[in-house]
Amino acid sequence: MVDKRKLIASSAFFFSLLLFFFLTAGISEVDMDSSLFPPSLSHPFGTDIYGRDVLSRLSFGSLISIALSSLITVTTTIVGLLIAFLMDRKGIVSSLSFLVSNTMKSLNPIILALFLSSVFRPGFMVIFISISISHIPDIARTAYSRITIIKKEEFVLYAKAEGMGDLEIAVRHIIPQMRKEVLTQSISIFSSSILTESALSFLGAGIPVLLPSIGGMLSEGRPLLLSHPSLVLIPSAVLFLISLALHLMHDALDFDS
């Protein structure tokens, strides 16, 4: 069951955050003269140790993070659905796709990202690959368990008897029937990839230091925690709000089922 009111409210919450980021994002140059200014009209959240405006960096970083996570979510969902349909095939194809899904499932995104970024260079590609890989099995499992149920339904059997091809049945009958489950899972992947990405940026293996990122701002602000707590608290609060909006959306979709 879907709680429509809650879904609308949480989506409105998320999109107003997004709008806020769009309106306030900007590139802020290093200016050592204005280092660590308190909040003022020109710098609503103050400036960081290099004199950069916290608000514009924070919004820009959030937008990068949201864009990257959406890309991860879309890729994960498509590949996961593909694997789920392959699992439903017979023989070696099915076994192989179970094997692939199981292999991906046993990888931890953070350790994988740390490993990949010490072998290659840390950056977007490493974040993208390591977070996607560890979440593809989630979609695949969810979709597969739905497919095994839906394919026994009468409308699917009827379509098959009419001579409809497997691909057409998948697109026209099976995918629409598992829209809700897959969407719910995608949203939880979205929020978890935002959190994982910021954790990686915090650890120094995430988004390149030259670009703003919430995790990077947190690791810069951490030594100043006692003298300037806002440098840690404000980015954390923003991350919390994004993640909260997504969790509320997830719960609205997954209401009491």
Binding site: A199, V232, F240, S243, L244, H247
Partner: peptide, 11 residues
């Protein structure tokens, strides 16, 4: 639980 889930681990 919702709040704890949404909190970043370092926070």
């Amino acid at each position: 639980i919702l709040i704890i889930f949404s909190l970043p681990s370092f926070f």
